[in-house]
């Protein structure tokens, strides 16, 4: 192995990280210093955002107390907080949270499975695509919540009609993500695997599954939002439980404080789920970071 190849220092490897370490004493920012400054900037942004939200809430509270806005319809942060505390204190909120979470998470899971399966089959087999695509295009063009009444007629006012609506919203989204992902799959990667002697199994493992996973994860946040929309809208239309049901109830009572409390709850839940999917995304899609 004593060719010039193995002994020659490579030319174009200087882009690697170690260089930064040797220049610590110079004005060039080191890797850890730049990470520190990124961190500091993030903390700064977070602080400014918190301050802005705090300011907004304070203004709202003041306006409500001074009578600038009608405390009955506009409510106030303190009233909303009280309602929220009350909901958790007497435990009445739990069955509703459970209903909405069950419906949205079940719809999300089933929708992802169906979307992946249908998208993959359509992506790999042309006749299936010809059959499925028009239906899916139609379903994606219309606001799919219009099917809520039909689903309630078919499946009743229980949780299954909400699961079905969340499922419908998510499945179409995931279908297009996966179907498009397979169609966009780099033909050169497939050629490359073929020249190595790889067959369908290798292609699935090395090319399609990672490509599909990337597409699904890339759409996961939107899918989470869709799943909650499906569940809550389903509960709006007809139900006996759930955050959507409570929202309708609050509206019928003209209870703005309760509406705000429920909106706050749903926002917090979705943000939590977003943070969770963000972690999954960052871990699984590490290869996208340069």
């Amino acid at each position: 192995m004593t060719t010039s190849t193995s002994t020659q220092p490579p030319v174009d490897v200087q882009a690697g990280a170690p260089i930064a370490r040797t220049t610590r004493h110079v004005a060039v920012p080191t890797a850890s210093a730049s990470r520190r400054s990124v961190w500091r900037r993030r903390v700064g942004v977070g602080a400014r955002r918190t301050a802005a939200i705090g300011l907004l809430l304070a203004a709202w509270e003041a306006a409500s107390r001074a009578g600038v806005v009608d405390p009955f319809t506009a409510s106030s942060p303190s009233a909303v907080g009280e309602v929220l505390a009350g909901l958790f204190a007497d435990g009445t909120i739990w069955p509703h949270i459970e209903a909405t979470f069950t419906a949205s998470l079940l719809g999300l899971a089933l929708g992802i499975v169906a979307g992946v399966v249908l998208g993959t089959v359509a992506g790999l087999f042309r006749p299936v695509a010809e059959l499925l695509e028009p239906v899916m295009v139609l379903l994606s063009a219309v606001p799919r919540v219009i099917f809520a009444p039909l689903l309630i007629i078919w499946l009743g006012i229980g949780v299954s009609s909400k699961v079905a609506l969340a499922f419908l919203l998510v499945a179409v989204l995931v279908f297009f993500a996966v179907y498009g992902g397979i169609q966009d799959t780099d033909a050169r990667l497939i050629d490359r695997i073929r020249t190595f002697g790889g067959g369908t199994r290798v292609l699935l493992r090395e090319v399609y599954v990672p490509a599909i996973t990337g597409r699904v994860l890339g759409n996961l946040k939107i899918a989470v939002g869709f799943a909650f929309t499906g569940a809550v809208v389903g509960e709006f239309v007809a139900s006996a439980r759930g955050l959507g049901y409570l929202l309708m109830f609050a509206q019928s009572q003209y209870n703005a404080a309760l509406v705000f409390a429920l909106i706050t709850l749903i926002v917090v839940f979705v943000l939590l789920l977003f943070a969770l999917t963000g972690v999954v995304e960052r871990r699984a899609l590490r290869w996208r970071t340069r």
Binding site: D186, R188, L189, D191, R192, I193, T195, F196, G197, G198, V202, E206, V207, P210, A211, G214, W287, R288
Partner: peptide
């Protein structure tokens, strides 16, 4: 025993460099 070097590097973006290089060996 035939190797093919493409114009584009056509590496799997979601696999580590090591896995990419090992891939033809793994396939056999």
């Amino acid at each position: 025993d035939v190797g093919f070097l493409f114009q584009d590097d056509a590496l799997l973006p979601w696999r580590s460099v090591r896995h990419n290089v090992a891939l033809p060996l793994l396939i056999r």
